[in-house]
């Protein structure tokens, strides 16, 4: 072997300075990872942010911290300096917003601009609205002895989530702030005595403005049109209870003389779980078809009054209306939209 080159050796040793470790990464046991964040704004014009931090040393225990400030980003900064561990916001999975703040159109827009552009908070975090006092809600939950992930699991597809609950993410809300042709529903929840949360329905948002509240059964229709998710659920018709096994939606848009039309056909397969004596299949089918059609038509009329395209019909007309006119879809075209909604139910 050749003589060791001294200058090379020194260079190699010097590079150890650069390889001494990560920059200013905090070790995992020194970090607090909040999973749920609550944001509210009371009359006193200050934002209040509440975090639930899982206490890693005691299994299943959470602690709740709250801080007030002029903006969400300011409060998150304050919390970071006040807590003894390094708070890492990158694992936040659910953001609960209280109803008065959600109703404030301008604050909502500002907040979601921040949440989307923030480097810390992931844009896949779920968003929900609640009528209750968030701090009390969190402390009630921690008294029930629920673990830190319980709130998130309520919305988690891999855990306890049910398909009639809508799950809306930060990026979807952000997209809705700008979209010309599509609106969204954000789930509204409140705490309950025995289960972690109760799903109350959804708030309908038009460019970040709450225009209506819808019930869970109406929310299913929204999910059906938005995501083409089939509604796998039970429905009670009074004299019978049925179970929707499978569904399939077909939309046919057309436009004549600036009046848009959609022929919408919903095909569902049902099975009857229980029924009163003497009730025939065709009676059940007739009643179910009528019921869903009525539910849709009532709701659709209401959204036309609100000029909120919660079903996303505008998406079907993006090619049929000139792009320069598309921004007036909600005001000019949507109130005139005719939807011919038919339900075709068959027995399994």
């Amino acid at each position: 072997m050749e003589r060791l080159n001294l200058s090379k050796l020194i260079f190699a040793l010097l590079s150890l300075i650069l390889l001494c470790g990560c920059w200013d990464i905090k070790a995992i046991n020194e970090r607090s990872l909040p999973l749920v964040m609550g944001i509210s704004k009371k009359n006193d014009e200050k934002y209040q942010v509440t975090l639930t931090l899982p206490v890693t040393r005691v299994k299943g225990k959470t602690r709740i911290i709250t801080e007030k400030g002029e903006s969400v980003s300011e409060v998150l900064g304050q919390l970071r300096s006040n807590v003894e561990d390094a708070i890492d916001y990158s694992q936040i999975r659910l953001i609960l917003i209280d109803a008065p703040l959600a109703a404030n159109h301008l604050e909502w827009r500002k907040m979601f601009h921040y949440l989307m552009s923030s480097k810390d908070i992931p844009s896949i975090a779920l968003v929900a609205i609640t009528d209750e006092n968030i701090e009390q809600m969190f402390s009630k939950m921690s008294k029930q002895g629920l673990s830190g992930t319980a709130l998130y699991d309520f919305f988690n597809k891999g855990a306890g989530w049910a398909p009639d609950v809508s799950n809306t993410r930060i990026w979807e809300v952000y997209q809705n702030l700008f979209s010309y042709t599509n609106d969204i529903a954000v789930p509204v929840v409140h705490s309950s005595e025995d289960t972690i949360l109760k799903f109350k329905g959804s708030a309908v948002l038009k460019n970040g403005k709450v225009t209506a509240n819808i019930s869970p059964s109406e929310n299913q229709l929204v999910r059906l049109f938005q995501h083409h998710h089939f509604i796998r659920n039970t429905e009670n018709l009074g004299f019978a209870t049925i179970f929707v096994v499978n569904s399939h939606l077909k939309n046919k848009p057309s436009i004549t003389n600036h009046i848009p039309q959609v022929a919408s056909d919903l095909f569902i397969k049902i099975s009857i779980l229980e029924r009163d004596e003497g009730v025939s299949n065709s009676l059940v089918i007739d009643e179910l078809e009528k019921r869903i059609e009525k539910r849709f038509n009532d709701m659709f009329k209401q959204t036309q009054i609100n000029k909120t395209d919660i079903f996303g019909f505008g998406q079907l007309f993006r090619t049929r209306i000139p792009y320069d006119d598309l921004h007036s879809w909600r005001d000019k075209y949507y109130p005139k939209l005719i939807v011919n909604f038919r339900v075709h139910a068959t027995m399994e």
Binding site: I124, N156, R169, W171, Q175, L177, F178, S179
Partner: peptide
């Protein structure tokens, strides 16, 4: 993912698109 109206507000659109996917599995 976002549509023309929203995508013009991003500096790095592809990064935001990649960020919008939940890979919890």
């Amino acid at each position: 993912i976002f549509g023309q109206e929203t995508v013009t507000t991003f500096v790095f659109p592809m990064k935001e698109a990649a960020d919008s996917v939940d890979l919890s599995w």
